[in-house]
Amino acid sequence: MLKITSLVKRYGAGDPVLKDLDLEVPGEEVVSVIGSSGAGKSTLLRCINRLVEPTSGKIFLNGTDFTSLGKRELRVGRRRIGMVFQSFNLVDRLTVMENVQSGRLGYISTWAALSRRYPKEDIRRAYELMERVGIAHYANKRADELSGGERQRVGVIRALMQQPEILLADEPTASLDPKTSEQIMTLLRDLARELKLPVIINIHNVNEAKEFSDRIVGMRYGRIIFDDLPDALTKDAMHEIYAGVPHEDRQMEGAAA
């Protein structure tokens, strides 16, 4: 289970991007995080695996305090968190298999990585997962020869190769057309069920969020202002999440203070 307590992220001297944020993701559920651009969704996700260093607060994943990990421990910790990106973040000039196996880089020896002699069980698992999402026949293709949907499948498999305890997806469908986007969301939900994996998805498309998740978290200007079942996301609630601009929020806070 993931537990975030009083998380603050501040860039430079400006206003914090995340303001004293608490979030708990107990078991195997798909959580969608919605909110307008600049609400801090992406920063929240990147704080969990410390691609962005949190300013203060605590993050626990199944009992491990991620905020207190040293450099080496953090590398070991990151293996336990899979991540899927908006623009896939594949290495274009490597083959699909190499991209998939790069999810195992935290585990395998440097020599295995260098010579591309991956362990047998890793290769078997890679083929199984690739077959599951229908890209096994691309194993020897270069990643830049694939379509967007196929590339995101490679991205998902790369994350799953880590055998993670949680999956983070940062706008995984924002670069895809609606149909492909739907397929990837279905895939994420089904894989989460099959592998009993909690998933946190940053997403812009509210309809997709409602359709594919078990729980929706609404963020506005660095705070969580909605956290409930998808059915509870009423028009009013959505209005509160998306209306206004950060600038107005800032003024309101100033007035309140």
Partner: peptide
């Protein structure tokens, strides 16, 4: 799964 391929070499 149908196949149990466990070898792969870079071409």
């Amino acid at each position: 799964m149908s196949t149990a391929r466990d070898t792969w070499r870079k071409q």
